[in-house]
Design a protein around this nucleic acid. Structure first.
Lengths: 139, 139
DNA sequence: ATCCTAACTTGGACTTTGTCCAAGTCAACA
DNA sequence: TGTTGACTTGGACAAAGTCCAAGTTAGGAT
């Protein structure tokens, strides 16, 4: 189970039941939940947990790099617990399903110096879009 | 000026003063405005224009592919009038500045068949992140 | 030119997503 | 076992966006 909790303890976090539950929800299913979805699942295990605490905890996890924030559309942010393994995202335009994918090569290498405009470029996120098998079989 | 307006007329759009103003705002400065910024600029030319109309018009322009919606963070969507020229975005993590950039090669080519999971992949958006020259010279 | 009508716009109410804060609670160390 | 500062809570607030009934108007028909 959660070595995530161990890492948090190592960083001096107080291990409250709330943080434990949020970590478990994220660690449990490696999907890309919104903050409200995390809250809903957390409430199943700890009915009094507040939205504010879920937002706080997610924000802290993002800050320390344990979780990635994914802005796939203009809607709610999604939280990706798979932060320690480089990957990109493939999103179904039909139903919104998200998959982790692993493209070849380093996307940064494709951006020539002349196209960097003096920026210190540190990363690249790729969002592939398409239709999942189910949505392909419908209009 | 706006051949965008010509294309809209060609599609059977009623050319209202509101739509004209929104098109002019987008066409005028090729930056990446939020809906509220578009509204603010539109109001300067047409004081009574409502937020709802700006949202409607932007949504329609996105639907017909004249404008791209860019979700760079979890905040407001940004609207990119440069839809007809393939490009990606480079964003400053310090100040949020956005530049259009042109990486080499086709990002789709980097995604092997085995990593597509049966999806019909149709596009890829790349968001490069880094620090702009100004922000590099500060913490 | 004028009329008609479907298409468009308006303003305000409402929803979703997220932030903030004062007051109360509790994990962890002594 | 007590203490204390870190954490949590609920509710108010804010930002971004959607929806709708009522009013207006562009543009084809007359």
């Amino acid at each position: 189970m959660s070595d995530l909790l161990e890492r948090l303890r190592g960083r001096g976090w107080r291990l409250t039941s709330q943080r434990r539950v949020v970590a478990e929800v994220l660690d449990g299913e490696h999907v890309h939940l919104t903050a409200d979805e995390v809250h809903a699942r957390a409430v199943e295990r700890l009915p009094e947990i507040s939205r504010a605490t879920v937002y706080n905890t997610l924000g802290e996890l993002v800050c320390i790099g344990e979780v990635l924030e994914v802005a796939t559309d203009g809607r709610a942010k999604r939280y990706d617990p798979n932060a320690h393994h480089a990957h990109q995202h493939l999103i179904c335009s039909g139903c919104g399903a998200i998959r982790d994918v692993h493209p070849l090569g380093d996307p940064l290498a494709a951006l020539p110096e002349a196209e960097r405009f003096g920026f210190t470029v540190s990363g690249a996120e790729i969002t592939y879009r398409g239709l999942c098998p189910q949505c392909s079989n419908r209009p």
